[in-house]
């Protein structure tokens, strides 16, 4: 009601009245524009140019995009890998976040805090994922090889991260291990906010088991958190690069671990083809935003 009234005042009055608000918001937003908005705009503009950081950018129209889509076989592998990656780790990590948060919610006190910590810790422990290179190490000293040889499943150690057929699989495992982050915490918190009397009312109305309870009561009650969590998990699942570079190398064997972001980094920080790299960045940007928007739309309809 109040906002309607405010909007009827002339713009100059509202601008003047907003002065303290602008002053409060300005320091943050100046930096936000400089380091987030401007770079996105720059990426889009540069994607239509040839630019090597030394000379002025040359406008080339859709050339970079044509080359990406028609002439860059590695980009196609990277897109395929990223897609497989996102389609598997995105939904799976999202379900894991919800499932584990939901089970943890059955516990109380210290045990609950401990379980939260166990699942959340990998995502915050810096480059702790490097320990996976010990597990997946290609010689006999690797934990996985050592174990499988001891159990008689293997005679020779397998160089896991140098065999095309295993690379993506293990990267997915490591990514899932790392993926119970902000979204997971949001669900832990969201589950606490569900009104308990709803469960009692639900039981009277014929909710018979925990799955019905989850679907008809819990999920609809925490939809705002579910939507926020989805944004966190989706963005993360498209951005995979670090673990691929560290565990599989860049370039990885036959590009089995190449993702859109590793491809972007290859052109951006190795070959200095900034226009081309910007086109990759722009495609990535549009894909991430598009997927997020789509999933938000779907989530609004989910659950009773």
């Amino acid at each position: 009601m109040e906002t309607v009234a405010v909007k009827k005042k002339p713009l100059s009055r509202r601008l003047k009245k907003g002065a303290p608000a602008y002053a409060l918001a300005a320091p943050y937003f100046i930096l936000f524009f400089t380091f987030t908005v401007l770079p996105v705009a720059a990426s889009i503009v540069l994607s239509f140019t040839d630019f090597n950081m030394m000379e002025m950018p040359d406008f080339v129209g859709w050339k970079n995009y044509m080359r990406l889509l028609l002439n860059d076989d590695i980009f196609m592998i990277a897109v395929k890998n990223t897609f497989v990656f996102a389609v598997i780790t995105g939904p799976l990590s999202y379900m894991m976040c919800l499932l584990f948060a939901w089970i943890i919610n059955e516990f109380k006190g210290k045990l609950r805090a401990l379980l939260t910590l166990v699942f959340y810790a990998p995502s915050i422990s810096g480059n702790a994922f490097l320990v996976w290179s010990l597990i997946l190490s290609g010689d006999r000293y690797g934990y996985l090889n050592g174990m499988l040889i001891k159990l008689g499943f293997l005679y020779e150690p397998v160089v896991w991260m140098k065999e095309e057929k295993y690379v993506l699989f293990f990267l997915i495992i490591v990514q899932l291990w790392l993926s119970l982050g902000t979204g997971f915490l949001t669900f832990i918190a969201g589950l606490q906010t569900v009104d308990r009397t709803l469960y009692e009312a639900g039981a009277i109305d014929g909710v018979k088991n925990r799955w019905q309870e989850l679907w008809y009561i819990t999920i609809p009650s925490m939809r705002p958190q579910l939507m926020f969590g989805a944004v966190m998990q989706i963005t993360q699942s498209f951005a995979v690069a670090d673990i691929s570079i560290q565990l599989a190398g860049n370039p990885s064997v036959n590009y089995a671990g190449a993702t859109v972001v590793t491809h972007l980094m290859d052109f951006g920080s190795q070959r200095y083809e900034m226009g081309y790299a910007s086109a990759i960045a722009t495609i990535l940007f549009l894909t991430m935003i598009g997927t997020n928007r789509l999933v938000q739309k779907i989530l609004r309809k989910v659950g009773g």
């Binding site: 936000f32 720059a42 920080s269």
Partner: peptide
């Protein structure tokens, strides 16, 4: 809305222009 939108893409998108800026 811009802030919410910026949650939807990762830092890799802005890495190169950021370096120039």
């Amino acid at each position: 809305q811009m802030v919410v939108l910026s949650l939807m893409f990762s830092a890799a998108v802005t890495a190169i222009p950021n370096y120039m800026i």
